[in-house]
């Protein structure tokens, strides 16, 4: 596959699956104000997905639409980072997943603002404003709940312990990105991982949360290797279009 298509799917699949997981909280969040705020992030993520899929579909040139990409690919064809497919165990997991994602998403969007590919550059320049708000909000909640009550601290530490091993998958870079860097379509992405480390080190410390020891990073999402939750997410998300493949909605 064209590395450009692969890269756009890696980005778009990640925002889609996180958007899907975030949207599932609507009507079930801990307090009305949070219900509304969390849905706002889900809306931003779904919007960003559409933009990534448009670039991917166009680069692919096979006449597929963004909806075809979302609803008619299988588990091994989805290239999202494993972090975002981790389940909605509780709201602490949802917040921590969002924060770790944001801590990667902001630096990569900032880097993409300098992309040599016009559509990617424009996408990033639009999205980066949303993403700045997301991380401000996520960071604030991580600090408040980490350094909140004994119970909220324990909940957040539990979520961090469960999700930290999946953070590395966000930063995974292979020949796809390297090829795009080589032709000037992407800026060098090493700084993304550095920014992620700096951000999480400071924030998790302020939140009085301990980063779990390294050594068992989970990766593979970027090449279509997922966790067992992934098939269920797709089954739910794709059910209607796949049941009625000739229909338009």
């Amino acid at each position: 596959m064209d590395p450009l298509v692969t890269f756009c799917l890696r980005m778009g699949d990640t925002t889609l699956i996180l958007g899907q997981q975030t949207a599932a909280w609507c009507g079930h969040a801990p307090v009305l104000e949070e219900d509304i705020a969390f849905a706002n992030m889900g809306l931003d993520l779904i919007g960003q997905t559409q933009l990534w899929y448009e670039i991917a579909a166009q680069a692919e040139g096979q006449g597929r639409t963004p909806d075809d990409l979302a609803f008619f690919r299988t588990e091994r064809q989805f290239l999202n980072a494993q972090l975002v497919e981790r389940p909605n165990v509780d709201f602490a997991h949802a917040l921590m997943r969002q924060y770790l994602f944001d801590a990667w998403h902001l630096p990569i969007q900032e880097a993409l603002c300098e992309s040599g590919h016009q559509a990617i550059r424009e996408l990033a320049q639009k999205s980066v404003k949303e993403v700045r708000y997301h991380i401000d909000r996520s960071r604030d909640l991580i600090v408040r709940l980490g350094d909140g009550s004994e119970e909220s601290h324990a909940m957040m530490q539990g979520a961090l312990d469960a999700l930290w091993p999946y953070a590395a998958d966000l930063m995974a870079i292979d020949a796809v990105e390297q090829a795009l860097v080589g032709i000037g379509m992407l800026p060098p992405l090493d700084r993304v991982a550095c920014a992620f480390e700096a951000e999480t080190a400071v924030t998790l410390d302020r939140a009085t949360l301990a980063i779990p020891g390294n050594g068992h990073a989970r990766t593979g999402g970027r090449t279509g290797i997922h966790t067992e939750t992934m098939g269920y997410i797709l089954a739910e998300m794709q059910q209607i279009p796949r049941s009625f493949p000739d229909a338009r909605w």
């Binding site: 009507g27 079930h28 969040a29 801990p30 307090v31 949070e34 509780d90 709201f91 602490a92 600090v143 408040r144 709940l145 350094d147 909140g148 009550s149 119970e151 909220s152 601290h153 909940m155």
Partner: peptide, 19 residues
């Protein structure tokens, strides 16, 4: 369920604001 499961969140934020 939403209300009960969210108690730790509401109380945690109250505790932090007090701090």
């Amino acid at each position: 369920k939403a209300w009960d499961d969210g108690a730790w969140y509401r109380d945690g934020l109250t505790a932090h604001a007090e701090k």
